[in-house]
Design a protein around this nucleic acid. Structure first.
Lengths: 131, 131
DNA sequence: ATGGGTGCAAATCCTTTGCATCTGC
DNA sequence: GCAGATGCAAAGGATTTGCACCCAT
C-alpha cells in the first residue's frame, strides 16, 4: 500500500515495518531501512516514526517515559492518562476468566506467569481541563 | 510494617513508597526519601528498588527496555517474555466485555479510549531451553 | 530564494556501573 | 580489619534536538 502523503524515506520505513512481524525496535528498523536508503539517519527514522504514529498509521508498544514503583504487589489493573501521563490504580479491576488467559497465552506459545490490563484515556483532571 | 532484613535506607525507601499511592518514579522517591535520609544518593535508591523487587516486596510498572513499533494498529494483545524480552502478538485475544471495560475505566475516573492486555511469562524458546 | 526535510553531532533523560570511602561488627 | 553498603561521578542506551545544508519548488 502506498500513501501519497509520505515521502520516500517515510514510505521505506513504513514498508519495512509492515513486512516485519517481529515488532522491531527503532534501531532494528533503522538497520533494515538502510538497505533501501543507505543515507538515512537515526534521527530521521525517529522523526518518521513519530509522524506515522501521529497519523495513526503505526502503533508504539511499550513506550514508558520512566519506571514507576508500587508497593502493592497484588494483581491490579492500571489506567494511564495519555495526556498527562498519570498512572492510576483501577479500583474495579477487569475480571478475565483464568481459562481465557491460559488459552490466550497458549496461542502465543507462552508459559503464563502474570498479566496486566492497561486502560488508556484521559484522567479526570485532563477531561475537566479541556471540557 | 518493619522488616529486619532491611537496613535504614531500604526501610526508608519502602516506607515512603508505601505511603505514596501515586506510583512515584525513582526520581520522586529519591526526593521524598531525602527528607528522611539527606545523604542518600540516587544510585542507592535504584539499588534498593532492585533489591526490594527481587524480594517481591514491590513491583515495577511500565519498565520497558526500548520502544517497539507495530504497523498493525488494530487492537490485539501482546505477550512479553520475561526472560529474553521477546514481544509477541497473541493470536487468540482475551475478550473483555465492553461494559466491564467501561466500568473499570469509570472506577478510575478515566475516559477510556483504548486498552491493552499484556501477558507475561516465558516464550516457547526460553521454556524449551531451560526445560 | 524559500521552506521543508535531512544527516550529523551534541544534548537529554533515565538507569547502571566503577570505584574509593565509610560503616558496623 | 573486613565485608557489605554508600555516594559520587562517569558511563550507558534510547531518544530528542540544534543546526547547517540540500533540494524541489
Amino acid at each position: 500500500m502506498q500513501d501519497k502523503t509520505l515521502n520516500a524515506n517515510a514510505q521505506a520505513v513504513l514498508d519495512v515495518l509492515r513486512a516485519d512481524m517481529h515488532h522491531p525496535t527503532a534501531q532494528e528498523l533503522y538497520e533494515q531501512v538502510r538497505h533501501v536508503r543507505p543515507h538515512i539517519g537515526m534521527a530521521t527514522v525517529y522523526r518518521i516514526l513519530h509522524q506515522l504514529k501521529e497519523q495513526g498509521m503505526i502503533r508504539e508498544i511499550g513506550r514508558d517515559l520512566e519506571c514507576r514503583y508500587d508497593a502493592d504487589t497484588g494483581h491490579h489493573d492500571h489506567a494511564i492518562c495519555t495526556q498527562c501521563g498519570a498512572l492510576l490504580d483501577v479500583p474495579a479491576d477487569v475480571r478475565i476468566p483464568q481459562e481465557q488467559l491460559l488459552r490466550a497465552a497458549q496461542s502465543a506459545g507462552m508459559e503464563l506467569s502474570d498479566y496486566e490490563v492497561r486502560l488508556y484515556g484521559r484522567c479526570r483532571q485532563c477531561t475537566q481541563q479541556y471540557h
